[in-house]
Write a protein that binds this DNA or RNA. Structure first.
Lengths: 114, 114
DNA sequence: CCAACATTTCAATAATCGTTGAAATATGGA
DNA sequence: TCCATATTTCAACGATTATTGAAATGTTGG
């Protein structure tokens, strides 16, 4: 990923509502999610939402397709991966930026780490 | 890392000059780099640079210390790691966002992956 | 103390951003 | 065709952003 594209993608994610939208799209998976459903879930005005969708699409972070009256938005995982790749390659010390899998709170006294 | 902090960090990196500054700080390592040297390297006005440093510091992505007449800025790798962690945990499908080590061209026909 | 150097502070400016309300467009069903 | 639904377009607005120039601050060495 080029620096220019990275800046655009970062800017697209660097906003509260938009980050929420993208996270929701990620949860929704490749199937995507209707604009209306997103608007309702996040309590955002539909026109505001369109504005944010545009930003995400221009950054290559989302796609749209029409399905009936609804517009279905979906995350572009490829771009997100490229962004994370760019950050780890360019903005980390080469050490330790690859995320240690700490996401799940490591089930009380669970397995001894390998 | 909290969502709020993630947004702040993303915003800090979502600007051309500032991303350049941060990358330079990463290259400089924990020792850091003098404001003047950065200004010269990136051809930025010193006051503009101060503005960007502030953003990076407020995002927890940089620290300053005085050394003689110079202000030495250094990257906060901890925060950057946390940001990458947040992104991979929250904004990826759970699959494949952990960067495949493609940065180094994978030493010709290296180890077979476990 | 004074001069130079390194950087910050401040005020001003143009540009971009996020949100709103009103109106337009597209689709599907009665 | 007419209506309701789903979403976008458009113009407006206040807020924030990045940059500039001028002046202030802090530091070192003579």
């Amino acid at each position: 990923m080029e620096k220019t594209d990275a800046v655009t993608a970062l800017a697209a994610l660097a906003q509260d509502s938009r980050l929420d939208v993208f996270r929701l799209l990620v949860q929704a998976g490749p199937e995507g999610m209707a604009a209306g459903a997103i608007a309702e879930t996040l309590d955002l005005a539909p026109n505001t939402l369109t504005f944010h969708f545009d930003r995400l699409r221009m950054a290559g972070l989302a796609t749209v397709r029409r399905e009936g009256r609804s517009m279905i938005y979906a995350a572009r995982f490829e771009t997100m991966n490229a962004l994370v790749g760019f950050l780890t390659e360019n903005c980390c010390a080469g050490v330790s930026c690859a995320p240690t899998p700490s996401s799940k709170p490591a089930r009380k006294r669970g397995k001894i780490l390998a």
